[in-house]
Simulated scan of single mutants.
Amino acid sequence: MRPYVLITLITLLAVNSFAQSSARRQKPVIFSASSDWQKVTLKPTARLQPSRPTSAATNPADANTSPAPTVTVPPAQPDRTAPAEVVSTAPPSPYANRPSAPPVSPNETVTQPTRTGSSGASTSDFRPAFTGDFATNRNGWKAGIKGDYHFQIGMGRYSIRKRNVNTQQVAFSYVSLPPDINLNNADLFTIKVDVMADSGRIPTGGLVFGVRDSLNFNAFTLNGKGEISIIRVANGQVFSDYMPGDFFSPGVPIDKNRNRLTIRRKDGGLYFYVNEREVRTSPYPFRTLSGNGIGMITSGYWTSFQKLSVTLGP
């Protein structure tokens, strides 16, 4: 009886050991969750280490329906002949369809809108085309003693002083504008200058423009009586074919000591202003100028000019 019982116990122990050995053997697993799936393929190795739980990726759209199952993947020892292979497909981003501002690269420069004036022209990079600052004689103005006048540049002024009070000469100084600034071709331009005299006196003198030489030019000037002259000179002769050609009352106040003279071309006409107020006979039709020079003219005892500028555009 005892030998029979002993044989039975040994048989039961052997069967139990075989069952436990079979239970530890892992098989390949394929897992699918909703419409997004991933495949995990495992290959057995010689030795198995204790397993660590790893959560499978789930679709964010199914987060409110059912929790994703957990797959236990036992890591294996490195096998140079048959490494473990994992292939997965990532779920789509939940923010794929959300509108957003385009990203800015660190090397990208964000351009601010350009400010424009009331006429719509850009003001951020608009500068006078030509400026007579009179700090230096970089433009080549007449300087020193020339005939009966003394021409002096400095301190932001161009001063002309009469040396002979009985002279019949007129002081005349001009320079040519740069080649890319053509008054005949510009549809819009503005010429300005400040004219000054001794304290308590109205300045005598003004602007010359469209100058070819001292015998061919146009002029906009003041005299000591507060009158203005708008003339065209050709071959030394004054013409009144479309400009008055003589001094007359401008219909606007004329100040003592300093006045600003402005000539503006727009809409096919020439407009004339004293201290930003248009004179009564303005505008005149624009006609081709004899040249492309700009300058000053005077017959006064002492006349000074400041802030000369030629501006293209509105």
Rank of each mutant, 00 (worst) to 15 (best):
R25G: 01
S240W: 02
N292F: 10
N275S: 07
W302K: 15
Q49V: 11
V238K: 01
P60G: 05
P67N: 10
E108K: 12
A76C: 04
R163P: 01
R161I: 14
N137D: 12
A171H: 07
Q168F: 12
G140R: 03
D255R: 15
Q152E: 12
D241C: 01
Y271V: 00
E276T: 09
P102E: 11
K192Y: 00
F134H: 02
T190R: 06
T109F: 09
E108H: 12
S214H: 05
A129W: 05
T116M: 03
P53M: 15
I191C: 04
Q168M: 13
E276D: 15
I191M: 13
V40N: 12
I181N: 08
P74I: 13
T262M: 11
Y284R: 09
L270N: 12
D125R: 14
T65C: 02
S124T: 11
V165L: 15
I145K: 14
G268F: 11
T89Q: 12
Q306I: 04
Y301N: 15
M296C: 14
T72Q: 15
Q26R: 12
V238N: 00
A121E: 10
R47Y: 06
R232Y: 01
M1G: 13
E227T: 06
D133M: 00
T303F: 06
D246A: 04
I160R: 12
W37K: 09
R161D: 13
F272Q: 03
V238D: 00
A63N: 13
S176T: 06
N16G: 14
G120L: 08
I230H: 02
Q169I: 00
Q306H: 07
F18C: 08
P50W: 08
R232P: 00
R47F: 11
